[in-house]
């Protein structure tokens, strides 16, 4: 369960994100100015003008956001819900599992890696544990059905490199 009141961590994270956004916008602005023309003889505006307007706009908006967080004048500038580390950990574990499964795709193919993904997810990340036979059935059925659905649509999903 998430706590309702924002804490110091929320404040720090909001500030850090706003600063990062500002830095990103600044870097993009520098890249645009140094690599692209801002005006053009026949087309009036060069290819860099429009992206520069956007990156400068983003810079101004993120700097204003930094000001709003620091001044504490706008409650919306700071993230509202407090971080529940356990819940975030569960979401990030799902992401890590997806990354590992996709990385394993050349070795295990779509079917093998997605079986791995489903089974690990249903065994360790799903709050309501299903009996082992159901976990196995779902873990086989979901990738197989998906694979054949795409086969019907004449799209072959990745197979292991050794096959």
């Amino acid at each position: 369960m998430e706590k309702e009141k924002p804490d110091k961590l929320n404040y720090r994270l909001s500030l850090m994100t706003a600063v990062l956004m500002a830095v990103f916008a600044l870097v993009i602005s520098i890249v645009i100015v140094s690599t692209l023309e801002l005006s053009h003889k026949t087309m009036v505006l060069g290819p860099g003008f429009y992206p520069l307007v956007l990156s400068v706009g983003m810079l101004i908006a993120s700097l204003y956001l930094v000001y709003q967080v620091l001044s504490g004048k706008s409650a919306d500038a700071v993230m509202k819900k407090a971080i529940d580390k356990l819940a975030v950990g569960r979401s990030l574990s799902l992401f890590a599992l997806a990354v590992i499964s996709v990385a394993a795709m050349p070795l295990l193919g779509f079917l093998g890696s997605m079986f791995l993904f489903s089974f690990v997810h249903l065994s360790f990340l799903e709050p309501k544990k299903l009996p082992l036979h159901w976990r196995l059935i779902y873990s086989v059925a979901i990738p197989v059905c998906t694979y054949y659905l795409f086969e019907v649509l004449t799209i072959t999903l990745p197979t292991p490199f050794w096959l």
Binding site: A98, M114, F117, H121, I142, I155, T156
Partner: peptide, 26 residues
Amino acid sequence: PFMTPLVVIITIAGVYSVNQNVRDVW
């Protein structure tokens, strides 16, 4: 109970199917 793996797997397959490229999945 099995909606999360189903959605993630269809998403991965769907993204891959557009250009048949794992880079899109990443």
